[in-house]
């Protein structure tokens, strides 16, 4: 149940398959719920050429590790996985992958959503977007349109 922070482009489907083959026991899980967050090329009516994702490395790792452990217990998961980018990111590149494996679909769906909502609400990452008008931090006002 790792949380992995990467500063390079990753393929979420390859990562999911690789982790599942290495760490999940075939026949034990019946549901796999997945979320992939991808960078858009627009936000608040502006074109965004790229962004930089800053984080607080030790706290981010600590928070996401605990979130994985807590979610595994809360939803009786077989396992879960979080991969999150940091650094420079271009449109269409994956930013985040969350995966929840469980015996039945309800726990997997609920856990996958919980992982993402907790991550977005509390994991210490900060997006800075680069637009034609310059750089801007994606603060509270901008977040209201992200859901």
């Amino acid at each position: 149940m790792p949380a992995i922070l990467l500063d390079t482009v990753f393929n979420p489907w390859d990562e999911l398959q690789s982790y599942q083959e290495k760490h999940l026991q075939a026949g034990r899980y019946g549901a796999t719920a997945t979320f992939v967050g991808t960078m858009r090329d627009f936000n608040i009516d502006d074109s965004v050429s790229h962004m930089t994702l800053e984080h607080y490395p030790a706290m981010t790792q600590n928070f996401l590790d605990k979130l994985c452990a807590q979610s595994r217990e809360k939803f009786a998961l077989d396992d879960c996985l979080i991969i999150h980018r940091y650094g420079d990111i271009k449109p269409n590149e994956p930013i985040v992958l969350t995966v929840a494996w469980s015996a039945h679909r309800a726990q997997a769906f609920d856990a996958c959503r919980y992982l993402m909502e907790e991550l977005k609400a509390r994991a210490p990452f900060w997006k800075k977007e680069i637009t034609a008008g310059g750089e801007r931090w994606v603060h509270d006002e901008l977040r209201s349109s992200e859901k």
Partner: peptide, 10 residues
């Protein structure tokens, strides 16, 4: 001790 603005990951 760390200080930071509202988070915007994901």
């Amino acid at each position: 001790v760390a200080f930071f603005p509202p988070v915007t990951g994901g």
